[in-house]
Computed example of a mutant assay.
Amino acid sequence: MIAQEISHDPDLKDYKLKFPDFLQDSPPSNLQTVFKSSTQFSAGSDAHTFIVSVSILDEGAQTPSVANANLFIMQLCSNIGAGLIGSLNLKLDDGYSMPVPSTLVLNFSHTTGSDELSLQIDEASAQIKLSNQSPLDLQVSRYALVSASSITVASVPLHLPPGTAVPIPLPAEHADLSLAEDAQLILPAPMMKADVARFLNFQTVDVQETQYVIAIDAGSVNFNKFDSIVASITFATLPTVAPQVLTLTKHIHADSTHIVIPLENAVFSLPGEVDLTIKFSDGATADLKFTLQNDFTVQPVLVLLQSDIDNNMAGRV
């Protein structure tokens, strides 16, 4: 659209619009978040694009990288406000030394790219095939078809799964046609931690595994009739992790243990199966056994409720 305005301006018609390819070193570009250790900005593989690389490291024993990574991901997932905000300080050319700041927003709901959609003109059917070349579902809320002499804007919602295409009308004037679109990722609602892995390229630097605390809390359980509660926790996706056994009594209502797991599980998803055995203090009542499911990334401490026991007692023959 800017190029069209330039071509129609008699004072600028001989100029060519060019987008920036370089960044100014001073002042440096920045990303405003306390949960990062460092940020690096560099040129992307495609022309006029830039890459933001964020490193998150352990900041002492009290601030492990996993905790900061989880908080950073929460900012990316936030649907309140704009999420992560920063500034790209662009360099136009050697003849213009002043930095040109451009606002940077990183958020799954608001950040979009421009290379996910392609168009293919079909003159015979007077249509354009709009294709989604990304591996993710996209929702186009509006688009503009820009030619040398006109702009056609359409506010038509279009849902494009990965690798699919939809037809849109071909305008009569379509010489040197280009596309401008307003597209967003189609995100799960609500967006859970396990969903995030689809949208992030997660890389570890020098440590592939980390210690992670899992726990069970039965503070609200009435132990008057119980001698003990034994919880055996297993992880189907991590067969090398041995079953973890935690024991609760009328004197110990909570217990925890450390396990060594891949960093990805500590950040994204750690589904566990908790086999519970309730032993009664009268010595005559048979043990009550039942199973609970818990994602220990979302909820590192499984809270066992009295109602969990009562519901399974009621269903026992």
Rank of each mutant, 00 (worst) to 15 (best):
Q139R: 13
V52I: 13
P188E: 03
D227E: 15
E209R: 11
D94H: 11
L304S: 07
F280C: 01
I214F: 03
Q62F: 15
E209C: 02
P167M: 01
T152Y: 02
A314P: 04
D94A: 15
D275M: 10
A165N: 05
Q24V: 05
A172S: 10
Y15V: 01
L23W: 05
P271C: 01
E59F: 14
V230S: 11
V196D: 11
Q75N: 12
Q203W: 09
Q184C: 09
K91C: 02
E123Q: 14
V230T: 15
P27R: 04
Y15T: 08
T204P: 02
Y212P: 02
A286T: 12
I73H: 02
D295Y: 05
S42G: 05
N30I: 10
D58I: 09
G95K: 06
K225W: 04
L88N: 05
A148W: 11
N312P: 10
P243K: 07
V274I: 13
L238D: 06
D58L: 10
Q4P: 04
M98Y: 14
K129H: 14
T103V: 14
N30Q: 11
N312C: 10
A266D: 03
S26G: 01
G86C: 00
D46R: 15
V52P: 00
P188S: 02
Q293C: 01
F41I: 05
V267N: 01
D21W: 00
M98W: 14
T111A: 12
K250C: 09
I259W: 08
L158I: 15
I229C: 08
Q32K: 14
P190N: 10
P101M: 05
I233S: 07
P167R: 03
I216M: 09
V207I: 07
V52K: 07
D255I: 09
V146F: 00
P101F: 06
P135V: 10
N224D: 14
I51H: 00
L263I: 04
V213I: 12
S42V: 03
Q127C: 01
A254Q: 15
L179A: 06
A180D: 10
S78Q: 01
L117M: 04
T152N: 03
G83R: 02
I6N: 10
V207T: 09
V205A: 13
P169H: 08
F72E: 03
V303K: 14
K250N: 15
C77N: 10
S55C: 07
S38R: 04
E123I: 07
S269D: 02
F35K: 12
Q299E: 12
Q211W: 08
P271M: 00
